[in-house]
Design a protein around this nucleic acid. Structure first.
Length: 855
RNA sequence: GGGCGUAUAGCUCAGUGGUUAGAGCACUCGCCUUACAAGCGAGCGGCCGUAGGUUCGAGUCCUACUACGCCCA
């Protein structure tokens, strides 16, 4: 035990010890019932860790440590998310390469100079490389990131078993993603179809419903004249006049009196003179604009519904690059119409709109002035241009979006899951209930897990999408752009009568949704998988219930017919002092490592533990300082409690003896401690680490302020009463060290090492049975009454501006519970330096304390 | 527009229908007290968002409203 205990250096010291001694190693001989398994969120390695990570990962760690001390074999792996766009861009810029899946794998490839980072976007100097080489570069780069992340996690004190890690682009993850997909395909849960698709023109990829967000954007209603056969105009209002050439019908509500005569008739479009039908449909809103709208292929999702339900033609004018297609759509046949279209061809949506407005003004078909509005526009969450809708062939996985029975079963799965906090389930129910299509899982990107599929080419060289060729599971992972399907030769690639590989990659959630299977060794290590799956806990942010949580449930439901885990704990956000979510753009993000170095890991963890599941929490360095004070207090109080035992009597590792606790006040303290153990245990069983900490902390401070002061003098003595105090202190110390261990792992292992063998984190969680024989006989009133008197004495000294060492001439205590005081009279008199302590019984429920200070 | 959540001391938050609503921080006034001055003691500080209702009794339950946050349209 050091003469002057300090928190400095505890992180390095204990992180090294835990690593060396495998303190957190998963015991893979444990049966499922003895295992507590955690589906840890894999952080994005190409990004950086921020305070929010420290916050939520600490929550999980407190639960992991509690379960470990309760005797569970804790399966606590760590994953790295290196799959997807962020890594793609980072690898491009770092190595000056770009992925070109048409290239063959080059085993001798070395990237160009890794110096000057290249500019964003399509730098022409970027060297094209195969997908296999690109993945290797990704793994090379992220290996560096992973080291930095791991170092941060170790310093934070996460009790992860570092022998169990995975990366979402590594071979095992790719094999698992492809295997699960092939099984989805075989069971009919995955399918390929051509359909209108939400499309990001910047990234040139399809996106899924879960990746959408609405953004308020300025726009304007344009009042535009269509023409009836008799020459009379029909006015519609639209915010997207550039889509007039894509118009396939007009639509009004079936009950709208104004348009009854028009239903079934045709009208001609302005400028282009295309004849289109007028239809009735209940989704048309009579109150919006003129009550009649143009249907284009495709302006928005309502257009898609109308197009599908009214069986309309398709006139595509916007290409995948977001520009007007070179050739006019079918039906746009008139000479003047084609001439007008030629003015638009190749233009961006924005330019096309300006040009068509000018044409409409010239022709007199634009009526009145534009009416500016702001309206919600759909964006890809990572994109900065509005989504277009184009018809493309894509892979889908069924998720209940078009199947009420499946939807109902997935809602039931949500009900089977235990949510922390429970109300988060509503997010899940709302999302599943609001799905309007299956999960679009293919992305027109280069870097990611490829679909393990080839297509035969017919005599004309066209792919037979209805006859996909799939590999044997034993061959996974495969890359169809370089691997050759069975029965074909490499020379047959992309030639008539040969084959072609599916060029797309999977949505990253197709891999992430398998994190329990990937971490648990599904089909790779059946023995491990049987011990850890379904997992006990999924910790995650509530913002990705619709994506990660939901998709993981979908995959496990299909593959295993079960939930992937029993509990989901949803962490809140970190808010800055203005109650806004902390974000990089606001420049208010603090780096985790700096935070840990400044305040100490235990202190930061203490702050994190103040955030209950689901609760947004203010970033508060004040709370970290409080945590640091608590850790220092644990050092000092432990030093005191251990130092009152004469050195020759101190036996390392000796269990404190409850039988030696004989004094009423010592037993009272242990009785109260028993209540703390019960409450903290119940709280942690329910994932309420915050309450467990609060309860423990409150008891500990009161122990230091009152009990320690009361027994101090006696404990230094050498008679049997001293032995009682010392034994009680050591029992309390042993219990408190363990109660604090999940939140403050560094300081607790430090103080534990002063007097015990092994790590505190390998000890059993405290149970009241350990000291029941002493505690059960304890009357808590003894301690509380003694404390009341002591406080009154302190108050008198404080008001007299005297030192706490000042002598007290006489104290008279009156009240019902003076007998309780009497049982601790010696300690009270010693702690208060009271010469005469008079105890007068009365019927008053409250103790009255009269203090006369010495002169 | 729909759903969920939050509203208690200057700040951050506890409060599980039942005495006079609590803690920490901050602030004020004190104290060198051999575990701890990175400490200790004491004190100040509340129309519990607003308005109704249920109840013997409401910070707590119900309804409406207001403000804020998140999710979804």
């Amino acid at each position: 035990m050091p003469a002057k205990p300090s928190l400095d250096g505890l992180e390095e010291k204990w992180a090294a010890v835990w690593d060396e001694q495998d303190t957190y190693a998963f015991d893979r001989t444990a049966e499922r019932a003895e295992v507590f398994s955690i589906d840890t969120p894999p952080p994005t390695v190409s990004g950086s860790l921020h305070v929010g990570h420290v916050f939520s990962y600490t929550h999980t760690d407190t639960v992991a440590r509690f379960q470990r001390m309760r005797g569970k074999a804790v399966f606590y792996p760590m994953g790295w998310d290196d799959n997807g766009l962020p890594t793609e861009r980072r690898v491009q810029n770092y190595y000056g390469v770009r992925c070109d899946p048409s290239l063959p794998y080059d085993p001798d490839f070395e990237p160009p100079a890794q110096t000057a980072p290249h500019k964003r976007g399509g730098d022409p100097r970027q060297v094209p490389v195969s997908r296999g080489n690109f993945i290797e570069l990704c793994e090379r780069l992220t290996a560096e990131d992973e080291k930095a992340f791991e170092a941060t996690w170790r310093r934070l004190g996460l009790s992860v078993d570092w022998k169990h890690t995975y990366a979402t682009i590594d071979a095992a993850s790719r094999a698992a993603s492809q295997r699960a997909f092939l099984r989805n395909l075989a069971r009919g849960e995955a399918y390929l179809t051509e359909a209108p698709t939400l499309w990001d023109v910047t990234y040139r990829t399809a996106v899924a419903q879960a990746e959408l967000e609405d953004r308020e954007r300025p726009g304007a209603y344009h009042r535009i004249a269509f023409h009836r056969p008799d020459g009379e105009p029909v006015h519609i209002e639209t915010t997207r006049p550039e889509l007039i050439p894509a118009c396939v019908a007009l639509v009004a509500h079936p009950d709208d009196e104004r348009y009854q005569a028009l239903f079934g008739q045709t009208v001609r479009t302005p400028i282009f003179g295309v004849e289109v039908p007028v239809k009735a449909h209940p989704l048309a809103e009579p109150d919006k604009g003129s009550g009649i709208a143009m249907i284009c292929t495709f302006g928005d999702l309502t257009d898609v519904t109308w197009w599908r339900e009214l069986r309309l033609e398709t006139r595509t004018v916007i290409g995948r690059d977001g520009r007007v297609l070179a050739d006019p759509p079918r039906g746009l046949d008139s000479e003047s119409g084609r001439a007008a279209y030629a003015e638009l061809a190749g233009a961006t949506v924005h330019t096309a709109r300006e040009r068509i407005v000018a044409m409409l003004r010239d022709s007199g078909e634009l009526v009145g002035e534009l009416r500016p509005i702001t309206h919600p526009v759909k964006f890809y969450e990572r994109g900065d241009k509005p989504l277009e809708i184009v018809s493309t062939r894509q892979w889908y996985v069924r998720n209940g979006g078009r199947d009420d029975e499946l939807r109902a079963r997935l809602v039931e799965r949500g009900a089977e899951l235990t949510w922390h906090p429970p109300y988060m389930r509503a997010r899940y129910d709302n999302w599943v209930g609001g799905l309007n299509g299956d999960w679009l899982v293919s992305r027109q990107r280069f870097f990611g897990v490829p679909f393990p599929v080839w297509y035969p080419l017919d005599e004309a060289g066209e792919p037979r999408y209805d006859r996909p060729i799939t590999p044997d599971e034993s061959a996974l992972p495969v890359d169809p752009s370089s691997d050759v399907p069975e029965g074909y030769r490499a020379e047959q690639r992309d030639v008539p009568g040969g084959f072609t590989g599916d060029p797309d990659v999977m949505d990253t959630w197709m891999t992430s949704s398998l994190s329990p299977q990937i971490a648990g060794g599904w089909e790779r290590d059946p023995d491990l998988f049987a011990r850890v799956f379904p997992m006990d806990l999924r910790p995650q942010g509530h913002d990705i219930i619709r994506t990660w949580l939901f998709s993981t449930i979908v995959r496990a439901h299909f593959e295993h017919g079960t939930l992937p885990w029993r509990n989901a704990a949803l962490s809140g956000w970190i808010l800055d002092p203005d109650r806004k979510k902390m974000s990089k753009s606001k420049g208010n993000v603090v780096t985790p490592i700096g935070l840990l170095e400044e305040h100490g890991s235990d202190a930061v963890r203490y702050w994190a533990a103040s955030g209950r599941p689901g609760t947004d929490t203010a970033f508060d360095t004040g709370q970290m300082k409080v945590g640091r004070r608590l850790a220092i207090k644990i050092l000092n109080a432990s030093k005191f409690a251990l130092s009152v035992v004469p050195e020759e009597q101190a036996v390392r590792g000796a269990a404190p003896d409850p039988e030696a606790v004989t004094e009423p006040i010592d037993r009272a303290m242990l009785a109260e401690l028993a209540g703390v153990v019960d409450d903290a245990t119940a709280a942690l069983e329910g994932y309420d680490y915050t309450r467990a900490l609060e309860r423990t902390e409150r008891f500990f401070w009161e122990l230091c302020d009152d009990y320690l002061e009361l027994v101090k003098a006696r404990a230094y003595d050498s008679d049997p009463a001293a032995g009682s105090a010392r034994a009680a202190l050591r029992i309390a110390l042993s219990v408190l060290h363990r109660l604090f261990a999940p939140v403050l792992p560094f300081v607790t292992d430090e103080v534990w090492s002063w007097w015990q063998e092994g790590s505190v984190h390998a000890q059993p969680w405290p149970r009241t049975e350990e000291f029941a024989s002493a505690a059960q006989a304890g009357d808590p009133a003894v301690l509380s009454a003694a404390s009341t008197v002591l406080r009154a004495v302190r108050k008198a000294k404080s008001e007299a501006k005297q030192s706490m060492r000042a002598d007290v001439e006489r104290v008279v205590v009156t009240g019902k519970s003076v007998e309780a005081v009497r049982r601790a009279a010696g300690d009270v008199a010693a702690a208060g330096r009271i010469r005469t302590l008079d105890l007068v019984g009365s019927d008053d429920a409250e103790l009255a304390v009269e203090v006369r200070l010495a002169d």
